[in-house]
Design a protein around this nucleic acid. Structure first.
Length: 484
RNA sequence: GGCGGCAUAGCCAAGUGGUAAGGCAGAGGGCUGCAAAACCUUUAUUCCCCAGUUCGAAUCUGGGUGCCGCCUCCA
């Protein structure tokens, strides 16, 4: 596999620290507002990457944090007369709800800053002892000058940054680029006791401490949004490597921003789309499909036209999957012949298999991987039409094996991408009261159609459609399916 | 102002030296009582512009233009 590494600005062959195991840390959210599509992109991407790595046989550990104490949370808490903890809990719950809707599996651990304070204090103390940090007025700052490689991740030099300085003047800092490891508490703020007085951790130190704690030194992959490269990840590199004296993470993987009208979606711009709201209008799986339909490092524009296109394409794949699920239940009657058609379908499977894996192996190219699925669907669909309409030439063992091959591929790759509804659908093959009632109505409708009573026939179809039962006529009778 | 990235059809989007994937939308066709689904045909002599390297470039080099991100909280 090849993965693009921000540190070296090129794709590199991926070799894990320990054969067969991959440790991944992805910067999570600061829970002070509703989870938006930008957050969803990161989560969905890493969910897919993790599933793919597992498919490849790796044992994956994914860690993603919550920054559950910070200025924004405190401000929001004061505004609402609640505690910072209340605010954090509320939006962490919102995050998990959004993730569940999008089919994102929880990370192996979701550590929280407030539960790691003692670890953080240990690391900050060690950095002071090693001469990489200093206390000033109850704050503790990292001394950037003590880390000569500062800037290596984001590709900047300290001199350049000071030249263009938009960095605020803080008289406590020795150097404008120094950043807080520990912040002294102001009155009324949540605080923890420390050797430097009551206070709380700075933003960057938590990720260093938690990633090292749960994954160890030199873990495999550190991910996050492209907007975190500087200063957040640059600072993580500096403080972590100053602390452990060896490389921090092996690969740095950053995803592009979700945009609205070609502008970054962010809380400060005020153009965020909350997952909670968006899923009222679109199937969450369409959102998920949309988020992986572009390469992860590219910007992704979020808008109604883009979603509509994604939705259509997604439905095409879902329909094909459902049709395959149905056709493989047919019992074979006879072995059948190796016709050029069936050979072509099997060939399409082989190509799909090869293309999907090659695409994902090349820096998680989900867009290309999805196109492999479309090509498979296009190859099998005409035959699926025939088979489902009762053409007996397709009730053979060779054809059913070919269909099963297609179905297997869509199932396995669909699970990696997480784009298909779980649990299948309710249709005429499911016994039960619902099926009996629908069948009864369709019998009546068939009689109406036989009598050319189109008004009644259409009325039944329309009303069933409103209830959520989609009816489709075929030469061999009507089929139906429960849509949700 | 500094640093980084991107520019491919109406739209979205792959493709990093060998002659332009895929999806959506559009047009035509076939199927249907109508619809839905699915199918067939069609849609970039060309990849922002200019120069260069090469037998050959969307792909490499130089210059230009436009857009985005970061430099302040941000996924």
């Amino acid at each position: 596999m090849r993965i693009y590494n921000t540190m070296t600005r090129q794709k590199e062959e991926f070799t894990p620290r320990e054969p067969g195991k991959v440790g991944i840390y992805v910067c999570g959210v600061t829970p002070y507002a509703q989870t938006h599509i930008g957050h969803a992109r990161v989560a969905v991407l890493w969910d897919v990457f993790k599933r793919y790595l597992e498919f490849k046989g790796f044992e994956v550990t994914l860690i993603s944090n919550f920054t559950d104490v910070d200025d924004k949370i405190i401000a929001k808490a004061n505004q609402e007369g609640l505690s910072a903890r209340d605010i954090a809990e509320r939006y962490i719950a919102d995050y998990f709800e959004a993730m569940q809707a999008l089919g994102v599996r929880p990370a192996d651990r979701h550590p929280r800053v407030t539960e790691e304070i003692s670890e953080i204090i240990k690391v900050v103390s060690a950095l002071i002892e090693k001469g990489h940090a200093y206390e000033a007025g109850g704050d503790v700052y990292f001394d950037v000058a003590s880390f000569p490689e500062y800037g290596k991740l984001s590709g900047r030099s300290p001199e350049e940054m000071e030249a263009g300085s938009r960095v605020e003047i803080n008289p406590l800092k020795r150097n404008p680029l120094d950043f807080a490891l520990w912040k002294a508490a102001k009155p009324g703020e949540p605080a923890w006791e420390s050797p430097w007085g009551p206070g709380r951790p700075g933003w960057h130190i938590e990720c260093s401490v938690m990633s090292l704690k749960y994954l160890g030194e030199g873990f495999d992959i550190h991910g996050g949004g492209l907007d975190l490269v500087f200063p957040h990840h640059e600072n993580e590199v500096a403080q972590s490597e100053a602390f452990i004296g060896s490389p921090f993470a092996r690969y740095w993987v950053h995803n592009g921003m979700v945009q609205v009208d070609q502008e970054k979606m962010s809380k400060s711009v005020g153009n965020t789309a909350a997952v909670r709201e968006v899923i009222k209008h679109w199937d969450p799986l369409v959102i998920r499909f949309f988020l992986i339909s572009t390469h992860y490092r590219s910007p992704l524009n979020f808008g109604p036209e883009e979603l509509a296109a994604a939705s259509k394409g997604w439905e095409r794949l879902v329909n094909a999957k459902h049709r395959l699920d149905k056709v493989v239940l047919v019992a074979a009657s006879g072995e059948g012949e190796e016709t050029p058609e069936v050979v072509a379908v099997r060939q399409a499977c082989a190509e799909c298999r090869e293309k999907f894996v090659a695409a994902m192996d090349d820096d998680f190219n989900t867009a290309l991987a999805i196109s492999a699925l479309y090509e498979l669907v296009r190859a099998v669909n005409p035959h699926l039409n025939q088979a489902l309409q009762g053409n007996n030439n397709y009730r053979t063992a060779v054809w059913l094996a070919a269909f099963a091959d297609c179905q297997g591929l869509l199932t396995v790759y669909g699970q990696i991408l997480g784009i298909f509804p779980q649990g299948g659908t309710v249709d005429e093959s499911d016994p039960g009261l619902v099926a009996d009632l629908v069948e009864l109505l369709l019998e009546l409708r068939a009689e109406a159609r036989a009598a050319k009573n189109w008004a009644l026939a259409d009325h039944i179809r329309d009303r069933l459609g409103q209830i959520g039962v989609e009816v489709k006529d075929t030469p061999s009778g009507a089929t139906w399916e429960l849509k949700r």
